[in-house]
Simulated scan of single mutants.
Amino acid sequence: MTNDRPTTGPGRPTGHAPRRPADRQPLLEIDGLSVDFHLAGSVVHAVRDVSLHVRAGETLAVVGESGSGKSATALSVLRLNPSPPCVYASGEIRFDGRDLLRLSEKELGRVRGRDIAMVFQDPMTCLDPLQRVGAQVAEVLRHHTGMSRAEAAKAALAALDEVGIPDPALRYRQYPHELSGGLRQRVMIATALVARPRVLIADEPTTALDVTVQRQILDLLVTLQHKHDMGVVLITHDLAVVAETADRVVVMHRGKVVETGDVLDVFDRPADDYTRRLLAATPRLEAA
C-alpha cells in the first residue's frame, strides 16, 4: 500500500483531521510516575514524574530517542519491567478507577491481555517457538474467558482472518519460524486483540519490518482501532509515523515529558527546544 500524498517533513497529509472528539473521559491515566532501576552500585532514574492519558478511540504517540524512558513508561502500565532491578518509586497508573501499581499479581493478571494488551516490536521474542501460532492466539481466550478448546480455536481463526493473514486455516497450524516477519507481527496483533482489550499499547511495532510492511501494519492498527473503539498508546521514534496515525503526542527526553499536545499543534508550533531538534532531524520529503 502506498501513500502518494505529498508531505513536508513529518507534517500530516492535507485533509487529515482528528478522528475522535476530545471530550471523552480518559481510559488510562498515568500520574506522576517515576521508575528507577537499581543496578550494581548505582540507581538509574529511567522515568521521572511522567503524566499522560489516552481516551477511547484515540491514538496517543509517545516519542523520543533511545533511552528517553518511553518504553519503560509503557511497560510500567502492566508492570512488565523486570523486578528487580525495577522499582516503581512513585505515581499512579489508573484504569477503571484502580491503581494498577497497587494490584496483586493475580488481580493484574485479569487485566493483562483482556483489558489492556501490548504489541512488541519483535514477535520472535514473544511468540512461543514450540507452539503453533493458532494455539497461542486461542490460549488468550481460554485464559480470560473460559471458552472451550473448540470455541477458542474458532475465535482464534477468526482473529487471524481479521488481521489480514492469508489462508488463516493453514497459518493457524504453523509455527512462528514458518512465517514472515510481517505475518508474525499480524499474529502478535491478533493475539493482543482477540480478547477485545479497551487499550492497546504498541511498543515500536514496526521497527523490524520493511517499509511496505510497516505501512500495512500501521493501517491495520488504525482500522482495528476504529472498529473496536480502542485507546492506543503508540511508542515510537518515527515522527513520520506519528504524523500519519496519532491524535496527540507526548515528547520524552531523559525520562521526562518535555512537551505534549495535539499532533498538529506540536509539529507546527513546538514549544520545547528538544522537540524542535527532533523535528529538524527528521528527513523531509518535498512535493515535486
Rank of each mutant, 00 (worst) to 15 (best):
R5V: 15
T7G: 12
T8S: 08
P10H: 09
R12A: 05
T14Y: 11
G15A: 09
H16L: 10
R20L: 12
D23M: 10
L27S: 04
L27M: 14
L28E: 09
L28Y: 11
V35G: 05
D36K: 09
A40V: 12
V43W: 04
V43I: 05
V43E: 09
V43Y: 03
D49L: 15
S51W: 07
H53C: 13
E58L: 02
E58K: 00
E58V: 02
V62H: 00
V63W: 00
G67M: 06
G69K: 04
A72P: 01
A72R: 00
P82H: 07
S83N: 10
G91Y: 14
R94Y: 09
F95V: 05
D96Q: 15
D96T: 10
R98N: 06
R102H: 09
E105K: 00
K106I: 06
K106M: 01
K106W: 10
E107S: 10
L108P: 14
G109I: 00
R110C: 12
V111A: 14
R112W: 03
G113S: 04
R114S: 15
D115K: 03
Q121R: 01
Q121K: 11
P123C: 05
L127T: 08
R132M: 13
V133N: 04
G134M: 14
G134H: 06
V137R: 06
A138I: 09
V140A: 14
L141D: 03
R142A: 04
H143M: 03
T145P: 02
S148F: 09
K154F: 13
A156V: 10
A156T: 06
A156P: 12
L157T: 07
A158K: 07
L160H: 12
L160P: 13
D161M: 14
E162W: 06
I165A: 04
I165R: 00
A169P: 11
R171S: 09
Y172D: 08
Y172G: 04
Q174K: 11
Y175F: 15
Y175E: 10
P176G: 09
H177N: 15
L179M: 14
S180V: 12
S180P: 12
G181R: 13
G182W: 05
M188P: 05
M188W: 10
I189M: 03
L193W: 10
L193R: 13
P197V: 11
P197Y: 14
R198D: 07
E204H: 00
E204V: 03
P205A: 00
T207M: 01
T212G: 12
T212V: 15
V213F: 03
I217N: 07
L218W: 01
L218K: 06
D219Q: 06
L221C: 03
L224Y: 04
L224P: 02
K227R: 15
K227A: 14
K227D: 08
T236I: 01
T236A: 00
D238P: 08
V242C: 03
R248E: 04
R248C: 05
V251Q: 02
G255F: 00
K256N: 11
K256Q: 14
V258W: 06
E259W: 07
L264D: 08
L264Q: 03
V266R: 08
F267S: 05
F267R: 02
F267P: 02
R269V: 00
P270D: 01
D273I: 11
R277V: 08
E286S: 15
E286K: 12
A287C: 04
A288C: 02
